[in-house]
Every structure is written in structure tokens, then in C-alpha cells.
Amino acid sequence: MRRPFAEVIGSPIHQSRSPAIHNFWLERAGIDAGYGATEMMPERLTEYFSVRRADVNWRGCNVTMPLKQAVLPLCDRLDPLARKIGAVNTIVRGPDGSLTGHNTDAAGFLEPLAADLRQPHLFRMARILGTGGAARAIVAALADRNFTLVLAGRDPAKARALLDELAPGGDHHAVPLSHFAGATDFSFDDRSQLLDLVVNASPLGMIGQPPLDFHFSHAPPGSIVYDIVTSPPRTPFLEQGAAAGFRTVDGLSMLIGQAAAAFALFFGQAPDRTTDGDLCAMLAA
């Protein structure tokens, strides 16, 4: 009998670190199961899920670009957070072959910011670049934690609609990506007791993608610079942010956080997070 397995689907998928992460945890836990990767485009999803529903060994899949919204109508159920965000990054097969969509991106994104978010602040602001499925989770998560948001996208109208949907009623702003490309002489006020984030929630800067064009004069003093791209782990955006004196958070932090929640859904137990140091060293090698 074949052993249980899960996988990640999307395109391009060859650069995904998810198989390495899940198989690392499976080995440490002594679970006889596997985790793979399958190249997938939207037009093949119906056939793919038809086959996977019938496979009792298939525990589910993680979903990456460009599929996080395309899978929504193919799920039988959505958990409340996935329904609110309008994007799915984890699908779990039930014993009857039913598919339940979850979103663990929000929790994964917030995990490396937990200590900062426990502190009181007079004001919180995030500049978010990108309007895809991951950006939806980030917008929803930060709006719930009282951030004022500036959302940048190639289509500002799409960014505005996303803010109106996921963060209604706030004093949020939608701008074109080009807004952040050139230098600004804006004079930031005293940033004490404030929390500022600058987040690349787009694939820009990923291997094989165009670079992210961001001028760090737009980042307030004391900002945290966060890039969700995982390949390469240290993107030019993060390197430039570090060189400008900003604290940085790389995409592996979010990836491991969201993967831990997905692992528990797939395999029925939480992974051993005491081995995160070894895992990060392996992924960075």
C-alpha cells in the first residue's frame, strides 16, 4: 500500500521550499508519509482534484501562485478565515473525499512579528506591495491588528477594491506600484511608539521575475522590511533594506510559520518547532 502524502501545487513550482520543510518534519516525527510538488495551472485544477479526491492516501495540498483564488470554487467547504480573506493556501481531504479550504498565510505572516504586535503603539502603518492571494491574507491580518494600510499594485483600482473588501471603514490608501519607485523628500515625523512595516507581497524579486523597484526614502525610520519571496531567501529588496539600516524579515519565516499550521492539518500533529534552527540552516544552504 502506498503511504500517505501531501504536496504543493502552483506554477512555477520547482523553486518551492515546501517539500524540504514538510519532509524534514515528517522525518523528525517518525511519520511514514511524504510530501511532493506538482506543477499546476488553473485550467488543470478540475481534473487534478477529481483524481486526488479518489485517492485515500492523499492528505491534501498547499496552494501557491497563481492558484490561491482559482481553487475557491473547487472546495466543498471554506474555513471562516479563508472565506473572509477570499484566498486558500491549504486544502485538506476529508475521509469522504470532500475538500476543505484553509488559509494559513495570515498566521504564517504574523508569526515573526508576534513580539512587535504585543507592544502598544500610538499608530501602526504598513506599506504593502502586491495585490495577489498572499497580499489578501496580509491585508486582512494587518487590518485586524489596527494598521493603516497603503496598498500598491499595478492596477490601483484593484488595490482599492481589495481594501474596500477586506479592510472597510479604515483610512487606507491605494496607489500604483510606481509610487514607491522614485525618491521622495517627505519628512517623516518622530517615529517613537509607532510600528511601520514595508512588505513585498508580490513575486517581484523572485528568481525568474523582474526586480522590485522600491526606493527606501519611502520607508519611515525604524521600519521593518519584510519580503515574502523565498527564492532567493535574501532578495535584493532585503539586502537594500539591511544596507539602509532597517530590520528585515525574509520569506522563509512566513513560509515555515504557514507550513507548520498546514502540517498539523495534513498529518494530525504539530511539527517539532524546536528544530527550526536546523531547518533554516538547511533551507539557506
Rank of each mutant, 00 (worst) to 15 (best):
L197C: 04
L197D: 03
L197K: 07
V198C: 04
V198K: 08
V198N: 01
V198G: 02
V199R: 01
V199I: 11
V199F: 02
N200A: 01
N200T: 12
A201M: 05
A201Y: 05
A201E: 10
S202L: 02
S202W: 02
S202Q: 04
P203V: 05
L204I: 06
L204T: 00
G205L: 08
M206L: 11
I207S: 14
I207F: 14
G208R: 08
G208T: 08
Q209L: 11
Q209I: 06
P210M: 05
P210V: 10
P210N: 09
P211G: 10
P211M: 13
P211L: 13
L212Q: 10
L212Y: 13
L212A: 03
F214Q: 00
H215D: 14
H215E: 12
S217P: 12
S217M: 07
H218C: 11
A219Y: 01
A219H: 04
A219R: 06
P220N: 15
P220F: 12
P221C: 14
P221R: 12
G222M: 02
G222E: 03
S223D: 03
V225M: 10
V225E: 05
V225C: 15
Y226K: 11
Y226L: 03
Y226C: 04
Y226V: 01
Y226F: 11
D227A: 08
D227L: 01
I228W: 00
V229Y: 02
V229W: 00
T230R: 00
T230L: 07
S231H: 08
S231D: 03
S231I: 09
S231P: 11
S231K: 13
P232G: 14
R234A: 07
T235C: 05
P236N: 04
P236R: 11
P236M: 07
F237V: 06
L238N: 00
Q240E: 14
G241S: 15
A242C: 13
A243H: 15
A243W: 09
A244F: 15
G245L: 05
G245T: 12
G245V: 11
F246R: 05
F246Y: 11
F246C: 08
F246T: 02
R247W: 10
R247S: 04
R247L: 12
T248C: 11
T248L: 04
V249A: 04
G251N: 00
G251Y: 00
L252R: 07
L252N: 09
L252G: 14
S253A: 13
S253I: 02
M254E: 00
M254I: 07
L255Y: 05
I256M: 15
I256H: 00
I256R: 01
I256F: 06
G257W: 03
G257S: 04
Q258C: 15
Q258I: 06
Q258N: 09
A262D: 05
F263T: 03
A264K: 15
A264S: 15
L265D: 04
L265T: 06
F267E: 04
F267T: 06
G268H: 14
G268V: 10
A270Y: 11
A270D: 01
A270M: 06
P271A: 14
P271L: 10
P271C: 14
P271V: 08
D272Y: 15
T274K: 15
D276G: 01
D276F: 08
G277S: 06
D278Y: 09
D278M: 09
L279S: 10
L279G: 00
L279R: 02
A281D: 12
A281P: 12
A281N: 10
L283R: 02
L283D: 00
L283S: 08
L283P: 00
L283N: 02
